[in-house]
Design a protein around this nucleic acid. Structure first.
Lengths: 135, 135
DNA sequence: ATAGAGCTTCCAGTCGCTGGAAGGTCAAGG
DNA sequence: CCTTGACCTTCCAGCGACTGGAAGCTCTAT
């Protein structure tokens, strides 16, 4: 199987597969006489695993750990669970932060006429408090 | 005022101020005889405005637009409102996506014992469906 | 005189790809 | 046999928005 076929079957673009190889996330495959990369079924499984992990938002370094745990039959499920839980905490704090921004922007948009006139509470909110500072 | 003072007063790191200058977000300031950048009160206001905009999550290119509108007394508040509203849409879709991931991970963590044993529904979910494909 | 803080420029790294250039290879069709 | 087009190869650059560090100059205080 060449890289294009692997790309289609795993759902990971060929460019990205080469990139994963360059950062040692996956092993370098064998090469055929013409220099083309040659993959086996195992590669389809590995790349699919990586794709799903990425879709769940795991950063590449955590995908690396997950891959190790996946391939290690002696692993403890506790380690995997811990990784997933810290991901959840990341996600929660990002959601909270986004929610805060959303609310703030929502209030401002609500307060703004949004017409041809220049008065705009949004800009006023961005404007620094103009205190009289000694020059 | 030198760059360090401006940094303290605006809350924007000196490095970042130089960066903003390099991408033409702010004007190049005058230089004193020794080559140091020299800023005025206006710069404090501008940098503070930029900082608050960034804190509200506007990407730099939108900050550029906001700055233009802020400085243009003929602006219409509608333009500003439109920018803020498209930001809200961005944020909403990011929140939704994160929420989806969070739920999915939450289910998986819930299903996983998380002990010393290797069985782990989280890894199983990442694993591709193993269909018998013709070799 | 010297130490330390503050300033200058320029280059590299972050994260995870993605695009493009320049070129080799292969199968099908005229 | 030749060409076309789809593959494949490598390497380099760019995205956003900084941030860190090196090397070197300037200022202030002791």
């Amino acid at each position: 199987m060449n890289i294009g076929t692997l790309a289609k079957r795993s759902g990971v673009p060929a460019k990205t597969i080469r990139y994963y190889e360059s950062v040692d996330l996956i092993e370098s495959p064998a090469r055929s006489e013409n220099g083309y990369r040659v993959y086996d079924e195992e590669a389809v499984r590995t790349l699919s695993f990586i794709r799903k992990s990425r879709e769940l938002g795991f950063p590449l370094e955590e995908v690396r750990s997950l891959l190790g745990l996946w391939q290690n039959k002696q692993r403890s499920s506790g380690e995997v669970r811990a990784l997933a839980q810290s991901r959840i905490q990341d996600i929660d704090s990002r959601i909270n932060e986004l929610q805060r921004l959303r609310d703030e922007l929502g209030h401002l948009v609500h307060a703004c006429h949004g017409d041809h006139r220049p008065e705009c509470p949004i800009l006023e909110a961005l404007e620094p408090h103009t205190e009289r500072t000694s020059k």
